[in-house]
């Protein structure tokens, strides 16, 4: 049997990842989230669909499913998701809600982080300005990583970015709200961490005994409010 010809007509570039997986490379985290959401919505038969900063990993594929998925991914376009958000994805703008729209999760924060003054300096504002910008930003959970339930929250502009610490803190407490680059995140459990600390929240980000263990799975919209 002759190998099937695959032609890329969409924005997805595929990379091999062993016999049971495909790595789909896209422009940015918004497109990755849109692709992962599409895959979940149409019911792609993958054991894992893992969005990340510029990729979506499809793992746990049956051998026969790999070729089919390859075809579908190479012709996938963001308008396969929903017409109202496709232009944002193409333009690389942060995407708001994708797919089934759940309620916005509100996260109350006490803004007393050790790096507030540093962030203010990087952003060219004062501490009140930092808090106002953080509260005023509509965030979306783009993907999880680093630790169970740790969501990379998109929504801040790419500039001015806040660099990580050169050397991570040995212990960051659970509930710490922090920034790195243009990402915001909340530490679900106490761990070492190199992100800049804005404040803290009492909200439980991760509870393995809940039906939905992660509070902020990919696609969740997030608003921070003053506690």
């Amino acid at each position: 049997m002759a190998p099937r010809a695959h032609r890329q007509t969409g924005p997805v570039h595929l990379r091999p990842f062993g016999p049971h997986a495909l790595l789909a490379e896209v422009a940015d985290a918004s497109a990755a989230l849109a692709l992962a959401t599409w895959a979940r919505t149409v019911g792609i038969a993958a054991g894992e669909v893992v969005p990340a900063a510029r990729t979506v990993l499809f793992d746990g594929l049956a051998t026969a499913a790999v070729e089919d998925l390859r075809d579908r991914l190479l012709t996938w376009t963001p308008d396969a998701v929903a017409p109202d958000i496709a232009p944002d994805i193409v333009a690389g703008r942060p995407v708001g809600p994708v797919g089934p729209v759940g309620p916005v999760v509100e996260v109350p924060v006490v803004y007393d982080g050790a790096d507030l003054a540093y962030i203010a300096e990087q952003w060219g504002t004062d501490v009140e300005g930092v808090v106002a910008r953080h509260i005023g930003t509509a965030f979306t959970s783009a993907f999880c990583g680093f630790a169970p339930g740790f969501a990379y929250l998109a929504g801040l502009p790419s500039e001015p970015a806040v660099p990580r610490l050169d050397s991570p803190r040995a212990a960051v407490p659970a509930g710490a709200v922090a920034l790195a680059g243009s990402w915001c995140g909340v530490y679900p459990t106490a761990s070492p961490g190199g992100w800049r600390l804005l404040g803290r929240t009492d909200v439980v980000l991760w509870d393995a005994t809940r039906t939905d263990p992660a509070l902020l799975p990919p696609g969740t919209r997030v608003r921070f409010v003053r506690a």
Binding site: G47, P51, G60, C144, G145, P148, P213
Partner: peptide, 9 residues
Amino acid sequence: RPGLAHLGV
């Protein structure tokens, strides 16, 4: 427990 990589597990 495969299937939870997207939540960081």
